[in-house]
Amino acid sequence: MPIVVKNLSYTYMKGTPYEKQALNDVSLTINDGDFLGIIGATGSGKSTFVRHLNGLIKLTQGSIIADGIDLSAKKPDLKLLRRKIGMVFQYPESQLFAETVFKDVCYGPKNMKKSAEECEALAHEAIELAGLDFEAFKDRSPFELSGGEKRRVAIAGVIACKPEYLVLDEPSAGLDPKGKDEMYNLVLKIKASTSHTVVIISHDIDEIAEYADRIAVFDDGRIYADFKTADIGQYADGLKERGLDVPVTVKLRNALKLSEITGVRQNELIESILKYYKTSK
């Protein structure tokens, strides 16, 4: 079932001199199987939006029905909601706390009242899925791992509850170029196995254009546009007007001004250029 958000508005610190409207009449439906990229400048409302999805920010105006759970109900089942929608925050390694990797990854399943055996099985699966060898890592302290490994453990801790939806906020921030590629490959792997719907917030439009199927653009608390990644070319000017970047591939395509050349993903564009060159010669 989809996540349906309608007319969502939210104001921080209402009634104080610091009052700020973070979201203004936002409507968006996240469908099963979506790989949705959310882009927008800092402070455009992206984080406030995703925090509403699993009830971390209480709904005050508008409606959200997440996988059948109505968040405008008096007491929505937050526990169930948070089991369904996993959330990986920015720099998630900063939430690690337990003395071993295994215990940390078990934290989620334990909170969801899973039995010890279930916890062990879930943790095992999650750690392996996150690309770490279970036997080699389970008894190590998360604090002695490298930065990249810590992040994988933190992600394992979120996917251990097998959420159907996974929201990631800047999962590749601070990683080196190869680490970034590996991170996105990990996300694709998770999408193929446990969490079939993925939402990623990122500032890197090239990354989003490469991996996401659909893009929602936040601007000053509103959604400026919501489109299939393949159609991003039409929105290039609108993105620029909002101070946002346009993917390098789209810039190149628009500069060439040839209708035969298509593709937003790097491989598609390269193939298309090569094909055009060969046929025109």
Binding site: R82, M87, P92, N111
Partner: peptide, 13 residues
């Protein structure tokens, strides 16, 4: 606030 949110998202009460 960020850490509380992160742990709540993992089902903490």
């Amino acid at each position: 606030e960020k850490i509380i949110s992160a742990q709540k998202a993992r089902g903490a009460e």
